[in-house]
Simulated assay, not measured.
Amino acid sequence: MYDFTGKTAVVTGAASGIGAVIAHELAASGATVIVSDLQAEGCDQTVTAIMDKGGKALAFAADVSDPSSMEALVAFAEAETGALHLAVNNAGIGGAQAPVGEYPLEAWQQVMDVNLNGVFYAMRYQIPAMERAGGGAIVNMASILGSVGFANSSAYVASKHAIVGLTKTAAIEYAQKSVRINAVGPGFVETPLLTKNLSQDMLDGLAGLHPMGRIGKPEEVSALTCFLLSDRASFITGSYHLVDGGYTSP
């Protein structure tokens, strides 16, 4: 559907779930994908799976909450492939479940370090690299909870709202420098992180929150993400796009 031949893409949180599916779709469309995650073994597994299908991929274990790690990731992409053109900042954590008045301070800081600071650190080094390459595109993975609240998830909700604001601001700053930056807001999606921690009754309850009556699939998020990275979205920047089965509509 898209032609990313000759392009290098970095995908964080790509060891499994949405990130892995995006990495596969980008590689299938011709990109060389730098598969990054905190878990080195998971990176290697995603890379092997991509290469088994004839795609091009390299693994780089990195911690998005560490700015030096994000700097090294971008430097690796440029050193190994010559340039960086595309990025999906997908890594994130859910955090503790508690009301605001009882939320653990350490858990709050951890969510902010990964979900929000991690996106900022990534873009801090991705954007200059894309300018050196003559332009590029970034998708930051927000959530439906970047636009609505959700009880007992204050840190996660706050971080995702902040990602939307950060995305819009960066998009304005680089709109005339050939770097497009957008955010995607998935609803609840069928990933190992979700399904391994919830019973079937709980999953059914989450499905019922979506007017379509089901939770989403990683491929549905990947389809939107890859479109936004492609030249077909050449006039789209600074936008926040939902893929949520109608969750935010009522």
Score class of each variant (00 low, 15 high):
L86I: 02
V88I: 12
V88Q: 11
G92R: 02
I93S: 09
G94L: 13
A96R: 05
A98C: 10
A98G: 04
P99Y: 07
V100R: 06
G101H: 05
E102H: 12
E102T: 10
P104A: 07
L105S: 13
L105Q: 09
A107R: 09
W108M: 08
Q109G: 09
Q109A: 15
V111Q: 07
V111S: 10
M112S: 10
V114W: 02
V114Q: 00
N117S: 15
V119P: 05
V119T: 11
V119W: 06
Y121W: 14
Y121L: 02
M123A: 09
R124H: 15
I127N: 08
I127C: 05
M130R: 02
A133K: 08
G134L: 03
G135K: 08
G135A: 03
G136R: 02
A137S: 15
V139D: 05
M141N: 14
S143L: 05
L145Q: 12
G149D: 08
G149Y: 02
G149S: 10
F150K: 12
A151P: 11
S153P: 00
Y156S: 10
Y156Q: 03
A158Y: 06
A158E: 04
S159H: 08
S159Q: 10
S159F: 04
K160S: 06
H161K: 03
A162Q: 02
I163V: 15
T167S: 13
T167R: 00
K168N: 11
T169G: 13
A170T: 03
A171H: 03
E173N: 12
E173T: 04
E173P: 11
E173L: 06
K177A: 13
K177G: 01
R180V: 04
I181K: 01
I181G: 02
I181W: 01
I181H: 04
A183N: 03
A183I: 01
A183M: 07
V184W: 10
G185N: 07
P186I: 00
P186H: 08
V189Q: 01
T191N: 07
T191S: 08
L194F: 04
L194M: 11
T195E: 06
S199G: 12
Q200A: 15
D204Q: 13
D204C: 07
D204A: 14
G205K: 08
L206D: 11
L209C: 04
H210D: 05
P211W: 03
M212Q: 12
R214V: 01
R214W: 02
R214I: 01
R214T: 09
I215G: 06
K217L: 11
